[in-house]
Design a protein around this nucleic acid. Structure first.
Lengths: 230, 230
DNA sequence: CCGCTACCGTACGTTTCCGTACTGAGAAAG
DNA sequence: CTTTCTCAGTACGGAAACGTACGGTAGCGG
């Protein structure tokens, strides 16, 4: 098995990993910690280990929605890969835990130093783009039940246990729907026996069934990940 | 004024532009011409001049939706910038016209040769990511009227005249809604006097009013473009 | 000029989700 | 142990958009 819990790091060739490792710093990140704020310079690039972060698009005061989820399979700060240092989006911790991080400027130097590293990580940017696109598709065409199933699957992919700590309220914000709609939908899930819902947490019981519920709306970015990162 | 009708090319520093120019080929692209098919290798990278192309996410047989629009402000084949050569999406011509193109392999060599060129173009990838994200937001939170207004504005930004050639049917596929819903909504637009609708075309009459209708759902990626490309 | 086809306008019952709001129950705080 | 707060369950009317479908009109091909 790989040395790193972060799968993106684990998949790096030794030379590139060595470059990074000297500057990586381990941190514990609490829930709701903001990693990137809209139109602010990114200070650190994070490689989550057990943390899961949400990337959220915002416009105006009220309109916001989650466009992607980043956990142990990836990294934040994709804008730095794009030779920039800001994004209009917000990124914050959804499930607390550990992550490795590196200062933006140091990271930028490493990218300039190793085209191989840069290219490797750009492939993850491609995966994440596919994830955003899939979110756009699901938001436009899927029923709430399917979208919720998709979200649970994505969160499940990024956790070690089968439990996701998350209130209906927060989930509603992520999906851009009413809190009550989430409650009703999750209730349906539990009655079908595919999850167990507790106050503030969801436990995956029958993953296969959830995958069937999500239908084609789950899987495309995940296949891209396997193809490009492995 | 810039030498190139494609704004991305026009904004390139002379050295990088020279590299590209020797290999660019001018082509006329008819409506519905497929530039990129899902999971197929990309043959050419296109820099639209008067062409407008749609990038569409597909899953299953029926579920599809437009995730972005690429015209004279950008380029197709972003996957090549990401050190890859396929995407799960489909890209095809929505409004016919001219474009410049370069073979993928030749393009890849130029990127390896000039980090400056690569970084410049990656910034456009960042802009396009913002566009996809905004689409996800609009699909999840906006009313059809707002989404339609947003689409018209984006198309308008990429045309020289004020006319967009597009049937309700096609527009419905792009937005992932019923054809009839588009008809009703466009009818509302025309009654307000903000557009003129003809058989198979829409003419922008009062752009400011359309911007007001789109509200916050229009503008974020456009601001990113100005910031990063200029 | 006629017929055909593609495109647009309209209608009706139905589904999904919203806005709002009230209530109860589990967890934390005093 | 009691208070307080957060979270979850439920309800009801209403808006948006859907599926389906029928008829009308513009413009093209013959």
């Amino acid at each position: 098995m790989a040395k790193h819990r972060n799968r993106l790091l684990a998949a790096l060739p030794a030379a590139d990993l060595n470059l990074l490792e000297t500057q990586l710093q381990s941190v514990q990140l609490e829930k709701r910690r903001v990693l990137e704020a809209p139109n602010k310079t990114v200070d650190y690039v994070y490689f989550p280990e057990t943390v899961i972060a949400s990337v959220v698009a915002i416009c105006g005061r009220e309109e916001r929605i989650e466009i992607g989820l980043i956990g142990c399979e990836g990294m934040t700060g994709l804008t730095v890969l794009m030779s920039d240092s800001k994004t209009p989006h917000s990124t914050y911790v959804q499930v607390e835990g550990e992550a490795l991080r590196i200062e933006t400027e140091a990271f930028r130097k490493l990218l300039a130093q190793s085209a191989s590293l840069h290219n490797r990580l750009l492939r993850f940017a491609q995966v994440f783009t596919a994830q955003i696109a899939q979110t756009a598709l699901a938001n436009g065409r899927a029923k709430l039940e399917q979208r919720l199933a998709r979200w649970i699957l994505m969160a499940h992919d990024r956790t070690v246990a089968d439990v996701v700590t998350m209130t209906h309220e927060f989930l509603a914000v992520m999906l851009g729907v009413r809190r009550a709609s989430v409650t009703v939908a999750l209730d349906g899930f539990e009655k079908k026996g595919v999850i167990e819902a507790r106050r503030g947490s969801i436990t995956v019981v029958d993953r296969k069934a959830i995958e069937r519920m999500a239908g084609h709306f789950y899987g495309v970015p995940e296949a891209e990940f396997r193809r490009l990162i492995g």
